[in-house]
Amino acid sequence: MKVLCFGVAKEIVGSSELILDKDKSLTVRELKAYLNTTYPKFLEYKSYVVAINQAYADDELSVSPGDEIAIIPPVSGG
């Protein structure tokens, strides 16, 4: 399962792409729990949102290995 990382998430994870050894789907909530335990530094920052196939996803949505998944820290464009 590939997860794209942007902004501060890229620095926390140390890469713009994260490969997770998840071969079946899980909920966004479960994915966040896994990411926050694997990278506790996330907890020092404002909470991020997850995007699935380029759309914002709420916690109950399920994520599958084939999806385009991205960690979206609070945005600051403009």
């Binding site: 942007f6 902004g7 501060v8 620095e11 020092e44 920052y45 404002k46 995007a51 991205a70 979206i72 820290p73 609070p74 945005v75 600051s76 464009g77 403009g78």
Partner: peptide, 22 residues
């Protein structure tokens, strides 16, 4: 400013930080 996935890193004289991240 609220919806588009764009992030701004502000570089200061004495460091830098991702805006709205902390």
């Amino acid at each position: 400013k609220n919806e588009v996935p764009i992030w701004k890193k502000e570089f200061l004289v004495d460091g830098s930080y991702w805006v709205n991240s902390r």
